[in-house]
Amino acid sequence: MITGFGVAVAVSAAVVAVWAFVSAARGREPGRALLGALGVVEALLVAQLVIGIVLLISGDRPHSMVTYLAYLVGSLVILPVGTVWALAERSRSSTVILGVACLAIPVMVERIHQIWGAGNG
């Protein structure tokens, strides 16, 4: 797995999370800019899935294939589901929800890299 890219995904998600929490503390509902930033993080996660699949095709193997794929695909679900849930009832709580969803991303990315690394040292 490409560590640098994983770090970039995790850091960008963390930055968006902080942004969401600050914005919620100021009593704001989720704005377009924040939702756009979430879109960017999601795009990075899609890129990570593509990189993961390319690595598999090129012959590298993670410690546990099923777990690896489950986490790769699972990481894509969190932000869209979180966003739908957040926007169903708009308030400053929606902004917090987006922040919480973003916080889950670095954990997922870390797990993906752990599962990949366990087989490849």
Binding site: V81, A86, E89, S93, I97, A101
Partner: peptide, 11 residues
């Protein structure tokens, strides 16, 4: 705020 609770539970 209860909606935040649901998201944390979901995660």
């Amino acid at each position: 705020p209860g909606r935040i609770l649901v998201v944390v539970y979901g995660i």
